[in-house]
């Protein structure tokens, strides 16, 4: 039983769950929605086991390190985090259709990791040998995952709201009838950012603490740090705009999508496009 077997199962499950969620919206059958959720849970379990096995494999090779050490491992952990946040929101809100808009992120991550990234287990260079690395990566990625969920429901919001306005007071049927109401979508958007924002804050702080341990400067305006701050500014603007300027609904949805785009740039773009100290660049 190797981790790569379970990573394959994970990718497969996320793909099937994604398709079944779409079927659910088309077929409007609660059983189908339930099946999609169960497949999502199974994929999440496989993802968990895979990460655990990979951890053990690294130890067996003599490397005392958590499986969060390179781009491949971070992407599969990102997929795991997305599922974690999504499934918790599903338990609370029970809005099955949301799965169709969140699973694609997790599936895209897994398929990219498996087809495009180097999965060799390499030991950590001294600068990365720190428990702070683990805390830093976990908090950042749970934050990113919450933003992914927020982005998914924002896309649903924008698809639905136009139709809803056109339909006036008549309930809208068809495929969009399976979407949660725009009010709920807007609420989930806000709640997800409410989870993501403190997590990102913790991620930035643990990163700063780590830099301070390793180099004696908690902040050096390295591109990665700066981008995480940019993302943080955007979501802080989101929270404040919502509070007083009444930026709810459409504008909040756009801001959330925009924030997630900046998040992805912070995570991948900075390393692939800009240069920096962080290790996830280049694979």
């Amino acid at each position: 039983m190797t981790s790569s077997l379970f990573f394959n199962l994970t990718t497969g499950a996320y793909f099937v769950a994604m398709v079944v969620f779409i079927l659910y919206i088309a077929a409007k059958s609660d059983q189908v929605g339930f099946a999609a959720t169960v497949i999502g849970w199974l994929g999440f379990a496989a993802n968990t086991v895979a990460i655990g096995l990979r951890w053990r494999e690294a130890y067996a090779m003599g490397f005392q390190q958590a499986p969060l050490s390179n781009l491949y491992e971070s992407v599969v952990f990102f997929a795991w985090s997305i599922l974690l946040v999504y499934l918790l929101f599903d338990l609370k809100y029970k809005q099955r259709a949301v799965g169709a808009f969140v699973m694609p992120f997790a599936f895209a991550g897994m398929i990219w990791a498996q087809w495009g990234l180097d999965d060799t287990i390499a030991p950590l260079v001294p600068a990365l040998q720190s428990n702070w690395l683990t805390y830093h990566v976990i908090t950042c990625f749970i934050g990113y995952a919450a933003f992914a969920v927020a982005c998914g429901v924002s896309i649903m919001y924008l698809i639905k709201v136009g139709k809803e306005e056109a339909a006036g007071n008549n309930p809208i049927g068809g495929v969009l009838g399976m979407f949660p109401s725009t009010k709920i979508l807007d609420d989930i958007n806000y709640k997800a950012i409410m989870v993501g924002f403190p997590m990102l804050t913790l991620g930035i702080i643990t990163g700063a603490a780590w830099a301070n341990y390793a180099w004696g400067t908690y902040w050096s305006w390295d591109p990665k740090e700066t981008w995480s701050l940019i993302v943080w500014f955007i979501y802080a603007a989101f929270l404040h705009a919502r509070f007083t300027r009444g930026w709810v609904g459409r504008r909040a949805a756009w801001l959330s999508i925009f924030g997630f785009a900046a998040t992805i740039f912070c995570y991948l773009g900075v390393n692939l496009v800009l240069s920096g100290l962080h290790s996830y660049g280049g694979g």
């Binding site: 305006w221 591109p223 700066t226 981008w227 701050l229 940019i230 500014f233 955007i234 802080a236 603007a237 404040h240 705009a241 509070f243 007083t244 300027r245 900046a262 900075v270 800009l274 240069s275």
Partner: peptide, 24 residues
């Protein structure tokens, strides 16, 4: 005003990009 806060946050976010594109 909170409007000022939001505008400042957005300007900070946008201008911060400069230093990530031009090496410092």
């Amino acid at each position: 005003s909170l409007k000022l806060a939001i505008v400042t946050l957005i300007i900070l976010a946008l201008t911060s990009i400069i230093g990530t594109v031009i090496e410092q």
